[in-house]
């Protein structure tokens, strides 16, 4: 029999002596940097492609989201008024390749948003909060601005880019995918400050075009700040300087263009008196 020499190796060659915490931080920061760069570059590609998307495709996307909205009030007496305003604006002021339809939703949210393909969704809460026709026209004009710039497609494109990156890196069963997947949901779709700013410009231009002056443009934001019934929103504004920057940007643009401020137009009687609702 061959002689056996019992001996243990002094060190373990099969395990690399290395700080795992440090490795984690190096890899994680590297990954984040790469993802940010790729996301940014693909975002630019999306922006380049968006002008070539046909309106019929936008309409298709919009109809998918429309089905998810509950509480649509087709018989609301304010709807024809809003529709007439939008029709007038798309005819004279805003150049769009399709007709825009206004949808009133019976919900106390103080909000309005645009669905791709020409649907503007306005909540009852917002209609109660506005105090003049000019203010309302600015909000509608702002939403028309999102159509003009195809902001939805940009937003959806970016959400898809984010989802693709996470699917590539993490595979199919990851919580991050669920989170990113929900960003495709239109309620969560957030436009960038830049996009909102551009839509504001369309809004103020359509005000000037329709009324010959732009008084009321910033009333909506300022009204929210002043009104006591929107305390939460006021808090949101206070902690969100970007919103007050929007007011400043609108004002700056107004002065640059030489737009004037004249008397506000009263809301049609179907809207009721706004003062009685804001003190509840």
């Amino acid at each position: 029999m061959v002689r056996y020499t019992p001996k243990l190796p002094e060190k373990n060659v099969n395990v690399t002596p290395r700080s795992h915490i440090r490795e984690l931080f190096v890899l994680l920061s590297g990954l984040i940097a790469i993802v940010v760069v790729v996301y940014f570059l693909l975002g630019l590609v999306v922006d380049q492609l968006v002008p070539y998307v046909p309106p019929s495709f936008e309409k298709k996307i919009g109809s998918v989201y429309l089905r998810q909205i509950e509480g649509i009030d087709k018989k609301d007496p304010r709807q024809p008024v809003l529709q007439a305003m939008v029709d007038d604006m798309t005819e004279k002021c805003v150049d769009l390749p399709y007709d825009v339809e206004v949808i009133v939703v019976n919900d106390q949210l103080v909000n309005a948003f645009a669905l791709p393909g020409g649907k503007i969704v306005v909540f009852d809460g917002l209609l109660k909060a506005v105090e003049s026709e000019n203010e309302l026209a600015f909000i509608l004009g702002h939403e028309l601005g999102h159509f003009v710039n195809k902001d939805h497609l940009r937003g959806l494109g970016r959400a898809l880019v984010g989802l693709s990156i996470s699917l590539t890196l993490l595979g199919t069963d990851s919580h991050l995918n669920d989170m990113l997947g929900s960003s495709l949901n239109l309620n969560r779709l957030r436009f960038s400050q830049q996009q909102e700013g551009k839509a504001d410009i369309v809004g103020i231009n359509s005000l000037q075009c329709r009324y010959g002056h732009v008084k009321g443009a910033t009333d909506f934001f300022e009204g929210l700040e002043a009104s006591s019934s929107f305390r939460q929103l006021r808090h949101y504004f206070a902690t969100h300087p970007a919103e007050s920057k929007r007011i400043d940007d609108i004002e700056e643009y107004r002065i640059k263009q030489g737009f004037e401020k004249k008397a506000l137009q009263q809301l049609p009687s179907v809207f009721g008196t706004p003062d009685s609702t804001s003190t509840e």
């Binding site: 395990v15 690399t16 795992h20 490795e23 890899l27």
Partner: peptide, 17 residues
């Protein structure tokens, strides 16, 4: 998690050793 990250970048997967 560390191994998952390392597999993305390639190289020696020390976490599994």
């Amino acid at each position: 998690i560390l191994a998952g990250l390392r597999i993305i970048f390639g190289g020696r997967v020390t976490a599994y050793e």
